[in-house]
Write a protein that binds this DNA or RNA. Structure first.
Lengths: 349, 349
DNA sequence: GTCATTCAAGAAAACGTTTTCTCGGATTTT
DNA sequence: AAAATCCGAGAAAACGTTTTCTTGAATGAC
């Protein structure tokens, strides 16, 4: 089972077996063949733990995501795993479920396993929980934190670009009253999206009604609640942009419940462009933030940091473009916005 | 950084440090306190690799799923992770993406990491790929394979129960032409579901039209295609049962496209009851196969096998009940169906 | 033909733990 | 009070590798 058994049967030293496996040049072809034959015969697989103990390299990366049951994340996990496999790395995934205890535990375990780097894809603000990793000089990559620190890279999401496209698209369809359902505003990323929305509106000369800035929670339930609120306003908006797709799905659901037709009565734009978006009814127009791309960037950030001989003095900043994907959940604004809504209300009574 | 440093600073031997960490009784409270203080001070975390090298226990379980981007699986991964955390295990997850090469590689790596057990949740038929694990006597747990072998447990899904409920439910709503969209029939699990459907229909005395047995592929796209086929039949069915929820979502999507209203024109039942089902428009009636429960069973199967002193001679068989969850995608059959069923029922008496 | 050089492969050290073995002092037994 | 027992803690072995050091044979130089 161990390298010794192989060595014994091939009548060589364990050093030779090790060298054979690792393709070190100094081993005679003849011996090499003999060793390989025994390895095959025995079905010998080297013990990774022993290997990385002596080599000091675990070939493991950690991946921390908020919640794997949120459809946004599986694509990231898959993408990360795909590249990891290609590069002979393994990954230790943790779905934090927003539980600080869980995060702390997971960080601890990753350190104990001597991971070579950790990608933190959480959109959260639990930064302090990762101090342990930082002080141990483990390469990290975050989403949307700055400024870069030694060994700590960052993927900056260019929210502005996609959201501007969304606002312009709606404006082109004659929408003027546009609501924005944000994520929890304690989250940097949620804040950034809202800010991008406001700036885009101002840029294009549309008024931002503070009543139409609604704080959601990035869940379907949140979308449902938010739409209820929106429909209660005397002056209903004709379009809604959501801070993520799950919220948009909630909005759709509640619209159906209340007899509001999308996109005839209400145009809807999501954010993230999860795969599901295209299978909604109607297919959801959304701002794409490529999960695969995020995964790729995150992995490469870690890998290149690990492969460096001297640590990067200031991490690296990667930028991810977002951009609008048009589908069927947006349409021309109902003419004379207001009146139409008034009529709608009457017929509802 | 290592146990030696701790030992040096606490002026004890490394054995004492080890004993302190592992709570071995024979260590004086006074010394213990001294050691702990140094550990805290240094922020020392033991090296898992060294630990499990000597102890021979990796405290890792492998988890192999078909495709983490399929909404059915994340709940399983999460559930598995939850229990693993509670039991101080770590998990190495692989999403096979149906690629045999990938599976083989992943199996190999798991063996190299000396995982203590592997849960295989794939609904596939790549069984031969796991022979390596079997021959190494690593505890395994499968879904829906039998018969049990030494150290190999099995979770048998009781498809019949839930599907019978679904058929009875539809029959009660006076449906008699009921279509079934299966998964790929090379899959045991897909076959089993179809068989359960046929048996349930016969049980209740409804005819099974072979034309209404359609082979899908467990994807949304498959559902879309299948519905197109169904709508082309001269004698359309009034209800459809799908072999999984993704297929049902595809059916919904295409129904919308073709102006077929669910549930007025067509009743729809899914299978799996993924979380998303309740957020569909309309909320999808589905046969629940609790993913959390599967995860729990799988983990416990592995854990109890590992904790045994002598291996189980025949694994253990766990059974998971399925049952219908009623929502809004089913309704009374369009009139015309009614009468006939009434007659049918009479003749059955 | 002797001596320096090269090189393949074995011996041994090292990685960071746990665990067995050993030892010396304290406690109990007689 | 001497002998036997216990017990806390250090020394050392072991886990399965990689890698450095060593060795001895073969090659080449003069």
């Amino acid at each position: 089972m161990s390298i010794h058994e192989v060595a014994r049967r091939a009548r060589v030293s364990i050093a030779t077996v090790s060298r054979t496996i690792n393709g070190v040049s100094t081993v005679t072809p003849q011996l090499s063949r003999r060793v390989w034959r025994v390895i095959e015969e025995l079905g010998y697989y080297p013990n990774t733990q022993a290997r990385s103990l002596v080599s000091g390299r675990s070939r493991i990366f950690g991946l921390i995501v908020s919640e794997i049951t949120n459809p946004f994340f599986p694509e990231i996990v898959q993408g990360f795993e795909d590249i990891a496999v290609q590069n002979n790395y393994e990954i230790l995934t943790t779905s934090t479920v927003h539980d600080p205890k869980r995060i702390a535990l997971s960080v601890r375990r990753m350190i104990e396993r001597r991971v070579e780097g950790v990608a933190i894809v959480t959109f959260g603000m639990e930064e302090a929980l990762f101090d342990d990793l930082k002080s141990r000089k483990i390469p990290l990559v975050f989403i949307d934190v700055g400024p870069p620190l030694p060994r700590i890279s960052n993927i900056r999401i260019d929210y502005q670009h996609g959201i501007r496209e969304a606002v312009q698209h709606l404006a082109a369809l004659c929408h003027e009253r546009i609501a924005f359902i944000s994520g929890p505003l304690i989250l940097k990323s949620a804040m950034a999206r809202q800010r991008a929305f406001i700036e885009s509106m101002e840029e294009i000369g549309l008024p931002v009604d503070p009543n139409l800035l609604i704080e959601g929670d990035h869940t379907m339930e949140g979308g449902i609640k938010a739409l209820k609120k929106i429909l209660n306003f005397p002056k209903r908006p004709t379009a809604v942009i959501c801070s993520n797709d799950m919220t948009a799905i909630g909005v759709m659901r509640q619209s159906y419940e209340e007899g509001v037709h999308i996109p005839r009565d209400l145009s809807l734009v999501g954010f993230d462009d999860i795969r599901l978006a295209q299978f909604m009814i109607p297919p959801l127009t959304s701002v794409k933030m490529s999960q695969t791309e995020i995964a790729r960037m995150a992995f490469n950030a870690l890998l290149s940091e690990v492969q460096r001989d001297i640590p990067s003095p200031n991490g690296t900043e990667y930028v991810l473009r977002t951009s609008l994907v048009l589908r069927d959940s947006t349409a021309m604004a109902p003419t004379g916005g207001r009146k139409k809504v008034a009529i709608l209300k009457k017929s509802a009574e």
